[in-house]
Amino acid sequence: MADNLFPTKIESKSKSVQELVMNNEEPPGNYFYEDGVNGVLDSSLPVLEMPVIDISRLTSPSTSREEVEKLHSALISCGCFMSINHGITGVFLDQVRSVTAQFFALPMEDKLKYSRAVDSTEGYGNDMILSEDQILDWTDRLYLILSPEDQRQFKFWPEKPEIF
Rank of each mutant, 00 (worst) to 15 (best):
V40P: 02
R65Y: 14
A101L: 11
Q95T: 15
T63V: 01
N126I: 13
E109F: 09
A117R: 14
I55H: 00
R57G: 01
M108T: 13
L48T: 09
D127H: 06
L45I: 05
L48N: 10
S77L: 09
A105Q: 05
V99Y: 08
Y31W: 10
Q102W: 04
T89I: 07
F104T: 07
G125T: 02
S73Q: 11
V37H: 08
N85H: 11
F92Q: 13
P61R: 02
L58A: 00
E109S: 13
I84F: 03
K111G: 00
L112A: 06
D110C: 14
V47A: 12
I76A: 07
L136Y: 09
P46K: 05
W138R: 05
C80V: 04
I129C: 11
L58E: 00
I55Y: 02
G125R: 00
L58F: 00
M82F: 14
S131L: 12
G79V: 02
D94I: 03
L130K: 15
T121W: 14
Q134N: 05
S131Y: 12
S62V: 07
D94P: 01
S115H: 04
E49M: 11
S56D: 12
E122M: 15
S77H: 10
S77V: 09
S64L: 09
T121H: 15
P46Q: 06
K70Q: 03
D133V: 10
D42G: 01
I53Y: 00
L75I: 05
H72R: 11
F92R: 14
M128D: 13
D127S: 09
N85F: 09
T121A: 14
E66F: 12
S44T: 10
A117H: 13
E34I: 08
G87Q: 05
P51D: 01
S56V: 07
P61M: 03
Q134C: 05
P61W: 02
D110T: 13
D35V: 15
V96C: 10
D133L: 06
S64Y: 10
P107Y: 12
I84R: 04
V68D: 05
P61L: 03
F32P: 06
D54L: 02
V118P: 10
S98Y: 14
C78Y: 04
G87L: 04
F32V: 12
N38G: 11
H72P: 03
D127I: 06
Y31I: 06
D35F: 13
G125K: 00
I76C: 10
